[in-house]
Every structure is written in C-alpha cells, then in structure tokens.
Amino acid sequence: MSRRLGLGSFTVGLVAAVLAGLVRTTTPLSNTAFPDTDVLLAKGLSALAVVLVTYGIYRLVMSVFVARITDRRRAHDIRNVLRLTVGLIALVGVLGAFTDQWLGVLVSFGVIGFAITFALQQPILSLIGWVYVVIKRPYAIGDRVTIANVSGDVAEVDFLVTTLWETGGTLSTNQPTGRTVTVPNSLVLSSEVVNHGALFDRIWTEVPVQVAYETDIQFVRDLMVDTAEAELGDETRAAIQRYRHRLDESPLELDVPESPTVNVSQSESWVVLTLRVLVPPRGAQSARNRLYERIFERLADHPDRVSFPVGRNR
C-alpha cells in the first residue's frame, strides 16, 4: 500500500510538472480581468509537483528500503532523518517555485534562521538534542532510562521530545505505571542520562535479608547463593560471560564475580546480608520477589541455625 501510494504520488507530481511547463510555454491565459493567471497557475502546479514528488520519494524509500530493516531502533532513526530531510527539501522547493529565486530562498533561510534563533532557543536545543541522540545513541527505542529524574521505557524519539512509558513514579517499585511522559530532547544536553541496559541486557540488583546476631552467618550466605543459583544460575552465568566480553572491549578494568555474591553489613540490632545478582532491567522486581520468597522459605526450614530480629521474619 505504501509503495503504491508513493508511485501514485510521484507519477501525479511528474504530470503536474509537465502541465506547469506547458502552461509556461503555451498561449498566455491572462486577460484584463485576471492578469497573470497563467503565471500563478504555473507556479501552483510547480509547487504541487514538488510536494507530490518529494512525498512519493519518501514513501518509496520507506517501503523499499526502510521496511526491510529488521532493527526497529535503526529504522526509527532513519525514518525521522528522512522525514526531516524530505520536509526541508519540499519547503525550499515550494518557496522556490513561487518566487523563482532558489538561491534567494536559501539565503533568506539563513537570515531568518539568525532572527528566530533567540525566539526558539528551546525547540532548537531540542532538535540539536535529537541529532545528538541519533549520532551518539545514549538511548534508543525500548531502552529503560532515567532522564532528569524521570524513569521509563523509551517509546518514541521525535525531533523535539522523547516519549517514555513511565516506570516507578508514584509506585514503590520500579514497574510500569501506565502513564506516558514526554521529555524535551534538550535535557539530554543539560542533564544526566542513565541507561539501565546500555552496557548489555542485564543490570545488578540486590536482595537484602536481615537476621539476628545469633544466626549462622556463613550458613545463610551459602543458602542465599545456592538459592540464586537455583533460580537464576544458567541465566546469570551466561550474562556474566557477556558482561566480561563487553568489558574486554572497553578500557575499564573491573573484577566480575563468576556467580552471585553476598555482602555482609552490621546495624545496631541485626546483620544485613545482601545478595547481589544480575537480572534483566525490566525483570528486576519480579526476580527479587522470587528470590525473597524462596530464600525465606528455605531459612524457615532451619530455625536452629537462623534467627530473625525480634524473633520473627522481617
């Protein structure tokens, strides 16, 4: 459908261009009542030809080339760049058709550009931000990001704004809220951007468990690691290998453990054992829930070796 629409628009545009040429070269239609009718008609047909031809080219490129790109993120970026380029070409063409001064139109764009820069600073900065996003790729469609304290999954990256499907927000967990948030692209240039899956498809998350000082700490540590291995073992090992591979390609030198780890810290009334594991960015909360449930189930089976603060599970 898109290809047919493109071919049809392109063909009609060529017909309009031919008719404009015929009007310019044939007997003038002007009369005393409506002077310069032939000139206005020729300019109108020329402008229509420019619009239809550029639109037809856009549709043909989208259907023939862009539609074959399997990477949704790259296809989205190419579509936006193509829309902007074709739109500018069409605008210059229409103005040139009516003024017959193509060079003057381009020069006027430069002069007008200086004049409106101060009046449209934020939109211009947002457009520059969009160019930065397309070139440097701090995030792309589908990434979970935090931009200026707003978290969500990137749903759309337009010329001026980025649309996020919000996560967290008023919820106590980092899960979708069902709302969308539009963030000006200019914030990419002036605020920090956190991409929760930029390095690869996993992030570190922690599962803290509080136990009393009378607890067999080493036993609980081993139990937590075994539980994580049973729940996420194969996925975690594969993710760690990918993580190490990505680190090898970077200048970073980090020590990456081969399995989940447990860190121990003290407070006034209990000991906190924090399990650290790799999970998908969008599945962090569900993974923590599973681990909490399984860990406490297993701890409850060993009351002789595990004690909880105030004598109850917390």
Rank of each mutant, 00 (worst) to 15 (best):
D77W: 01
L82D: 00
V51H: 13
L88S: 11
H76T: 02
V86Q: 03
F65H: 06
V39N: 05
R79V: 14
V39L: 13
I89D: 01
V81M: 03
V39D: 07
L40G: 08
R72D: 05
G44E: 10
A75L: 00
P35E: 07
L48W: 09
A90Y: 02
L60V: 03
T32E: 13
R68D: 08
R83C: 04
A49C: 06
R73W: 00
L41I: 10
R59A: 09
T85N: 09
A75N: 00
V51K: 05
V50T: 14
R68T: 09
A42S: 12
T70Y: 02
R74S: 02
L45V: 10
K43H: 11
Y55H: 14
L88R: 05
P35K: 07
R72E: 09
F34S: 14
L40K: 06
V86H: 04
V64Q: 11
F34T: 15
V39H: 04
G56M: 10
L88G: 09
S46L: 14
R74C: 01
G87H: 01
T37W: 13
R73Y: 01
L45S: 05
V53P: 00
V51W: 14
V86M: 13
T37I: 15
L84G: 08
M62E: 12
A67E: 07
R79L: 11
G56Q: 12
H76R: 02
A42Y: 02
I78H: 02
I69K: 00
R83Y: 04
K43S: 12
K43R: 15
I89V: 07
S46E: 14
F34W: 15
R68A: 08
L82R: 00
R68G: 06
A49N: 06
V86F: 11
T70D: 08
R73C: 02
A47H: 11
Y58P: 04
V50D: 07
P35S: 07
I69S: 00
P35I: 09
N31T: 15
A47I: 09
L41C: 05
A42L: 05
G87K: 00
P35G: 05
V53I: 15
S46Q: 12
I69V: 13
I89Q: 03
V64R: 12
F34H: 14
V39T: 12
M62S: 14
D77L: 05
D38M: 06
R68V: 06
T54E: 07
Y58M: 14
G56E: 10
N31R: 11
T32C: 09
Y55I: 11
L48F: 12
V66C: 00
T32R: 12
I57S: 08
L41Q: 05
V81T: 02
M62D: 09
K43M: 13
R83N: 09
R74H: 01
G44A: 15
V81H: 00
L52H: 08
V53S: 01
H76P: 02
L45A: 06
F65D: 04
Y55F: 15
D38W: 04
I57H: 11
I57A: 14
H76A: 07
A33M: 11
A42D: 03
V86K: 04
T85F: 11
V39S: 05
V86G: 06
R79C: 10
M62L: 14
L82T: 01
L52I: 09
T54Q: 07
G87D: 01
G44K: 08
F65Q: 05
I57E: 09
V66Q: 00
R59L: 14
I69M: 06
S46N: 11
